[in-house]
């Protein structure tokens, strides 16, 4: 398929996954905040501040109230890190590849965007609006992925779409963990917000069924990084990413992205069984995240005719 289309599909997957992840995170933090005081001190830190950091925004100096943070994370069209902005980007991408992803999926994405914009309606007005919007995005992205899985051919196009979503979820999860995990000097016992972390990624029930340990920071983080049975865990995403590239690649044996992802999967598996001495989970997250950045570049070089940052100049000589 055309390199440009593959590139669009990959980023469509990333943008949809980012919107979904943001929606879940907003939902999780919103709910946990209703129950515990936000000044619960050190330990596992996850609040509005953390979410803004996760998405790459700088929270700024002003004391961020819930309302303010919610608005920025969800429906602020001017901020590239908002949920709405991710959905808008997804729509732009979907428009370019609508013939590949099926009319039904395009319509689902288009309708989601139009509804989320809420032009001229009071549907998302404060105070509960942003929360309702994130609920809506959770439902709609589930629908969109459902259509993709049922209606799209399992071909190269689907592989690139999926690859985008896997790398995005892995990346988001790693970002979230790097912010939320307690550092060495903090009191590891005070990690009551581990529950919030599970809620924020929508993994609470899965955790309870898979792990017997109480939901404290260490076991929760290990679960979110290493548990292959949990589809949004870093390890599971990396495995799926490998499968997606291997399926799309004409010659996976000598494919740089396939090899790099495969190495990363092996590393994670090793670290799950035995954490090297002196290594914190946070370090593992950081290293994995760097690897994913490298994968992005490999993918651009191998499949997208170098279309990474969109810089392909043509110069003229006269």
């Amino acid at each position: 398929m055309l390199a440009r289309i593959a590139h669009e599909l990959y980023w469509l997957g990333r943008n949809l996954a980012r919107a979904e992840f943001t929606a879940r995170a907003v939902d999780g933090v919103f709910r946990s905040e209703l129950q515990t005081p936000s000044d619960s001190g050190p330990g596992l830190t996850l609040g509005w501040h953390g979410l803004l950091m996760m998405l790459g925004g700088t929270p700024g100096d002003e004391a961020l109230g819930r309302g303010h943070a919610l608005a920025r994370l969800t429906l602020d069209a001017d901020r590239p890190d908002s949920m709405l902005a991710s959905v808008e980007r997804a729509r732009e991408g979907a428009r370019a590849v609508r013939d590949v992803i099926s009319a039904e999926m395009w319509e689902a994405i288009n309708t989601t965007t139009l509804t989320l914009r809420g032009d001229g309606t009071a549907r998302w007005s404060a105070p509960a609006g942003p929360y309702l919007a994130s609920q809506y995005v959770k439902q709609r992205t589930a629908l969109i992925w459902g259509i993709a899985d049922r209606a799209m051919l399992r071909d190269e196009a689907k592989s690139f779409l999926d690859a985008g979503s896997f790398i995005e979820v892995a990346d988001m999860m790693l970002r979230l963990l790097r912010i939320a995990l307690p550092t060495a000097e903090q009191d590891p016992r005070r990690d009551g917000n581990a529950l919030a972390l599970l809620q924020a990624v929508g993994g609470f029930h899965a955790y309870l069924r898979a792990v017997t340990a109480p939901p404290n920071a260490q076991p929760v983080a290990r679960f979110l990084i290493f548990e292959r049975a949990y589809p949004d865990s870093v390890a599971a995403c990396v495995d799926s990413l490998h499968d997606a590239f291997a399926a799309a690649d004409a010659s996976p044996r000598d494919s740089q992205p396939v090899l790099r992802v495969s190495r990363l999967a092996a590393d994670l598996d090793f670290q799950r069984r035995m954490l090297p001495a002196g290594t914190e989970l946070v370090d593992i997250c950081e290293r994995a995240q760097h690897e994913l950045v490298a994968v992005d570049q490999d993918v651009a070089d191998r499949y997208f005719a170098g279309m990474a940052a969109g810089e392909r100049g043509i110069a003229m000589v006269v």
């Binding site: 398929m1 055309l2 289309i5 013939d99 590949v100 051919l153 399992r154 071909d155 190269e156 196009a157 499968d243 291997a246 399926a247 799309a248 690649d249 004409a250 996976p252 044996r253």
Partner: peptide, 20 residues
């Protein structure tokens, strides 16, 4: 048909992958 519907190719690749 959709552009590039390579049913055949996709299956071949999966088989290659399993061998690997």
């Amino acid at each position: 048909a959709l552009p590039e519907m390579r049913y055949g190719d996709a299956w071949t690749n999966q088989q290659q992958q399993q061998q690997q």
